[in-house]
Each structure stands twice: as structure tokens, then as C-alpha cells.
Design a protein around this nucleic acid. Structure first.
Lengths: 91, 91
DNA sequence: AATTGGGTATGCAGATTTTGCATATAGAAA
DNA sequence: TTTCTATATGCAAAATCTGCATACCCAATT
């Protein structure tokens, strides 16, 4: 399912126009992102937690040439599914 | 930030009551979960992809006692941040 | 508004799993 | 049309996951 298909579903479920459904959806993702940018985690009970994980610098490799390269430290967004979510998919 | 605080922010940004903001948010998460339950991935451009990862059974270990244990196969929801998301946090 | 029940973070070892590097291309999405 | 994402490759290092106790924080109920 891509974003467009998701918007169509939300439009029906929320009784909104597609444009409004998309605006609503974008507002939510942007709100979550803003919190993450402020170095805050976003914890949603029953769904999961979004947090920014810091990754250390390390040694990598160019798969084409095989040569070793240094990879800088970086940050990435992590999503940790809530317990309730795991249970849904494991029974 | 927890769910309650997120709902308050959304309520303001979307000009909805808190109850409506929460209903809207829950509808979105449920829609995503339904797609995942149907073994579909949910791809949101500019944000990320949710998918269900199958994990094979394997041998683990109880760190307290050191004894080996068999870990059953399981599934978990994975979120892969989109490229745009990584760039926001690495500059 | 306060209590309580429940989910979550933490730390521990060690084997398994994942990550992420460069880059082009194909396919899909906006 | 133009932008975005998955894929595929080898390999070192980082992250994960397991049980479990404790402490903590949040959510819901009274």
C-alpha cells in the first residue's frame, strides 16, 4: 500500500475529502518529525515509539571495489513496536 | 512526548476537539495496522515504510543462567525511514 | 485529582541478525 | 516527467533478542 492508497482509505474512514485527508496525515507526520528533531521521542501507547538513534562511526566497505572506507557517525529514526503490536502478529 | 501530548498538538494544528483528534489518529494507526495484518507493507514517501519482518526460530540464551533455549519464529513490525528522513538528522 | 495496574527502560552474555558502505538500474509513485 | 525507492553485491561492526528484576512512567479508572 502506498501513500495515495492510504489517503483514499482515510478519506473514507474519516469522511474527509482526499485533500483534507492528506493534509491531516501530513500534519501528523510533521508533528512527529518536529518532536524527533527536537531530540524528543514520541511514544504512542498500543502502537510504538519513534526515537532518534545515534549510530557510531565505523569501518565499512565499498561493495563494488572492496576497499575499506570510514563511515561517519550518524543518526536515524527508529520505530520500536509496542508490546500489543507484537502480540497481534504472533499468535 | 506521549500520545496525550501528541493529541493536544494535533488538536491545535487540525482545529479539532481532542476527542476528534484522537479518533482521527487512531483511525490512521488502525488503517496502517490492518494493511500490515493483511501482509501488505505501507510505503509513505518522504517518511518511511512499515513492513512485517518474519524472523526464523533460533537458539538463544538466558543471560542469568547461561542455559541455551530455543526461540520460536516470530514476526515484528519494522519501520524503515525514508531517505529524506535520514537527511534531516544528518547534516 | 489520586490511585493502581500495566507497559517500558535498563543491564547482563553471547549467538544471530542487521546495518550500511557505492552505484546503476528498474520500477513505482508524485 | 521527474523524483523516490528497492535491489544486489561482500563484509566488519553494531544492533538485536532472549529472561528477569527493579524502577519508572503513563493511562485509565475510580
Amino acid at each position: 500500500m502506498n501513500k495515495k492508497q492510504l489517503i483514499v482509505k482515510l478519506s473514507g474512514a474519516l469522511n474527509l475529502s482526499k485533500a483534507d485527508a492528506e493534509r491531516t496525515f501530513d500534519t501528523i507526520t510533521n508533528t512527529i518529525l518536529d518532536a524527533l528533531k527536537a531530540d524528543d521521542s514520541v511514544k504512542i501507547a498500543g502502537f510504538g515509539t519513534y526515537k532518534v538513534a545515534k549510530r557510531k562511526a565505523r569501518v565499512g566497505r565499498n561493495p563494488r571495489t572492496g576497499e575499506q572506507i570510514q563511515i561517519a557517525a550518524s543518526q536515524k529514526v527508529k520505530f520500536l513496536p509496542a508490546k500489543a503490536l507484537k502480540e497481534v502478529f504472533n499468535r
